[in-house]
């Protein structure tokens, strides 16, 4: 690349508005957030002193916060497992050539176009915790099919209730994972499959040694994207249950803290969330950037 102002000046000037804005509103505000989290700003009164990591220790000593982390863990496990399993299954079935493939694909993917708030309306109804005669939603289906033992309180249970919240999330994003896997399947050159078959590979070996390795970058992308969405889950919970203890995750706890003007606490929760996401995203971004440089 040529050096000199004439070469790097104009392009840098063109991206500089974005660099400045991102610098302020992403990195600057992250810095400001960390600063608040290290202060004693627990009310509308401005911070008076620097308290170090005190807010972090206080938060991790809270049963309520630990519970919200457990909830997030349960949600994340079910959400990731559900989207990956259904996404892969659908893509696998569609890849082999299906009449009206476009119809199936469009239907599996359409929930992605709907907001969590709108889908929350219908899922609040489907996941209604009333049982027996008063049951509606999914519990009513179980009641009518004689599968009474399947009736449950869904999200209205502080232990595994979050697994129920994962259902609508899976409904919305499994189609997205399907689209990713489908593009992965379509990206595998036919010659590779042919070559493996010529060598007498069984169907299982074909998958084990040819198709799965070729799909692993797609699977990684899907995992990262779904994983980081899961850590941020907020809209869906607010729409289905509002902020209540049973379904509390760090993001909704942050809302409670912020609306009660405990800025230090909300900032502390925010920093923890950011760290979670960064652990997932930063290695991925670095890896992608390196892979790209190698290609060039």
């Amino acid at each position: 690349m040529k050096k000199g102002y004439k070469n790097w000046g104009p392009p840098l000037l063109l991206v500089s508005p974005t660099i400045i804005v991102i610098g302020i509103f992403v990195y600057g505000l992250i810095g400001a957030n960390v600063a608040v989290s290290l202060s004693n700003r627990h009310s509308l009164v401005p911070a008076t002193e620097f308290v170090g990591l005190e807010n972090y220790f206080a938060l991790f000593a809270e049963e309520r916060f630990i519970h919200s982390l457990q909830n997030l863990g349960v949600f994340t496990v079910f959400f990731i497992a559900g989207t990956m399993i259904f996404g892969f299954l659908w893509a696998w079935m569609l890849d082999k050539g299906v009449t009206a493939e476009g119809v199936f694909r469009s239907v599996f993917l359409f929930p992605m176009a709907i907001s969590f708030v709108a889908s929350g309306v219908v899922w609040r109804w489907l996941l209604n915790s009333a049982e027996g005669d008063r049951a509606s939603g999914l519990n009513r289906i179980f009641e009518n099919l004689g599968l009474d033992f399947l009736q449950n309180a869904w999200w209205n249970e502080p232990g595994w209730g979050m697994a129920a919240i994962a259902l609508p999330a899976i409904w919305q994003l499994a189609g997205y994972v399907m689209a990713l896997f489908l593009s992965g399947f379509r990206g595998i050159p036919e010659e590779l499959r042919e070559a493996a078959r010529m060598d007498g590979a069984t169907e299982w070996k074909l998958y084990r040694y040819v198709i799965f390795p070729q799909l692993s970058p797609v699977a990684l992308s899907a995992l990262i994207i779904v994983g980081h969405m899961s850590l941020k889950v907020f809209d869906l919970i607010m729409a289905i249950t509002k902020s209540i203890y049973q379904t509390e995750v760090p993001a909704t706890y942050l809302w409670v803290a912020l609306t009660s003007n405990d800025y230090a606490k909300s900032a502390t929760i925010a920093t923890i969330l950011l760290l979670f996401v960064a652990v997932l995203i930063v290695p991925y971004l670095v890896y992608t950037a390196r892979a790209e440089r190698k290609q060039r």
Binding site: I22, A32, V36, Y263, A270, L274, V282
Partner: peptide, 23 residues
Amino acid sequence: VFTVILFGMFIPYQAIMTPLVQM
């Protein structure tokens, strides 16, 4: 520069919400 910009896409917006509301 690209990677630095791209990171902004993945952050949980909660991480900037407290100072953004104050701002």
